[in-house]
């Protein structure tokens, strides 16, 4: 029988079920990211359709201040790179390197959020709030949703660092690090489109 050998192999393989479970979880998370893509896609669609409806309020080019946004962009780009370095350290088996690079990533992420919050606060003080116009509703919701994603990622990253210090590098923590770094790269990709479509096309 053609499949007999394969079958025997999978039976022998049985006790190592944990590892397969982690592969399933990676796939599940990837699919979750696809759903998140669609979530952001819908927010982008709404923003693009409504971005001209300023209802007498400030327009994109009047409101956005690029230096802060450019800083945010390079910070997030760098953090995507450092989260990759964390994965590299993990694959080399270096727990200290792994936690260290995750910490660098988290600090960069936190400064990104800090800059974004101060940008929002400044806008609100200038009278540009979520209820000023459809354009600003779309802007705050799209950019804010990305910010909430980054913040959730930060809490999650700290939780993973704690688990790493407790359990070390094993198949479960390894998968968790792979997942968070995938998530982080994904948020970087979303930001590239926020940067391009909201900010760059807004001020050009």
């Amino acid at each position: 029988m053609a499949h007999g050998g394969n079958h025997a192999a999978s039976q022998a393989h049985g006790h190592d079920g944990h590892h397969d479970q982690e592969a399933l979880r990676m796939m599940g998370f990837w699919i979750f990211l696809i759903t998140d893509c669609i979530l952001f896609g819908t927010l982008f669609a709404t923003y693009v359709v409504l971005h001209g409806s300023t209802a007498g309020g400030p327009t994109a080019s009047e409101l956005f201040e690029m230096p802060g946004v450019i800083a945010e962009t390079f910070i997030l780009l760098t953090s995507s790179f450092t989260s990759g370095l964390a994965v590299l350290a993990m694959n080399k088996g270096s727990k200290r390197g792994l936690i260290g690079w995750l910490a660098v990533t988290a600090i960069l992420g936190a400064s990104f959020i800090g800059l974004e919050v101060s940008e929002f606060v400044k806008m609100v003080h200038e009278g540009a709030t979520i209820s000023t116009s459809a354009f600003l509703s779309g802007f705050f919701t799209l950019v804010g949703t990305h910010g909430v994603h980054v913040s959730v990622g930060l809490v999650w990253m700290v939780a993973i660092m704690l688990q790493l210090s407790r359990h070390g590098i094993n198949s479960v923590t390894k998968r968790k690090v792979n997942v968070i770094s995938l998530y982080w790269h994904f948020l970087d990709v979303v930001w590239i489109f926020v940067f391009t479509i909201v900010y760059m096309m807004g001020v050009k």
């Binding site: 709404t46 359709v49 409504l50 409806s53 300023t54 209802a55 979520i130 209820s131 000023t132 116009s133 459809a134 354009f135 509703s137 779309g138 705050f140 919701t141």
Partner: peptide, 14 residues
């Protein structure tokens, strides 16, 4: 909840 204007008749909503 926040008084935004995505789908309202005023404030540029649609």
């Amino acid at each position: 909840y926040f008084g935004a204007h995505f789908f309202t008749l005023d404030g540029g909503g649609n």
